[in-house]
């Protein structure tokens, strides 16, 4: 049984809470207010890992995108195993903020880009609008997907599963490395 801590990061109002609810299969809320601080969603997710079907305890941290809670970021970053970056491609200022977040959480913690997933979330109200922003250049190593919960929710879930498996692989690799390093020290 694996325990994974995942962060959902992104600028304000890009659909993080909706996405988190969807992933955790939580009941849909009709009116979603801006998240205060953080919402931690725990759920089990079955994942194909090296051909085996294993269930993973996922601790999904639906973090607020408000900069008011910047003081809480160190807590978010503590012991993180993977990050889901979400942004609204129809907003022009989202790429900058994403860059900012990426530099803080990935650059400082030394998390591998494999453990990150970038979701350009298309919200239903701006479905036919023009794309104004793309993932910033620092995301070139990060796997980026387009997600639309209205039209294609299953794809998002599949992508999430894949991401989870890669995260698990990274974790196991890290563990192995640590074990090896301990062994080597001796």
């Amino acid at each position: 049984m694996f325990k994974v801590k995942l962060l959902v990061l992104g600028p304000m109002g890009c659909g993080k809470t909706v996405l988190s609810n969807f992933l955790s299969r939580a009941t849909e809320m009709s009116n979603i207010s801006p998240t205060v601080g953080v919402r931690i969603l725990e759920f089990e997710q079955s994942v194909d890992l090296e051909g085996r079907n294993t269930s993973v305890d996922v601790e999904l941290w639906d973090c607020s995108g408000d900069h008011v809670y910047e003081s809480c970021w160190p807590a978010f970053a503590q012991g993180v195993n993977g990050i889901l970056f979400v942004f609204n491609p129809h907003r022009s200022n989202h790429d900058k903020e994403l860059e900012n977040l990426f530099s803080y959480f990935v650059g400082q913690s030394g998390l591998s880009p494999k453990c990150c997933l970038c979701l350009s979330n298309q919200l239903p109200e701006s479905l036919n609008a023009r794309l104004t922003s793309e993932p910033p250049p620092s995301f070139h190593n990060v796997h980026c997907i387009e997600s639309n919960l209205e039209t294609n929710p299953d794809a998002v879930r599949d992508e999430f599963k894949l991401f989870l498996s890669s995260v698990l692989v990274a974790i196991s690799d890290k563990q192995n490395q640590e074990e090896l390093s301990i062994m080597n020290r001796r």
Binding site: G37, V38, Y69, S71, C72, P74, A75, F76, Q78
Partner: peptide
Amino acid sequence: MKQAEVNIVSLLGKISANLS
């Protein structure tokens, strides 16, 4: 919930400060 949120924020702040 509101209270819990406030609590969460404060706790987070504390935790991050402690982490630093």
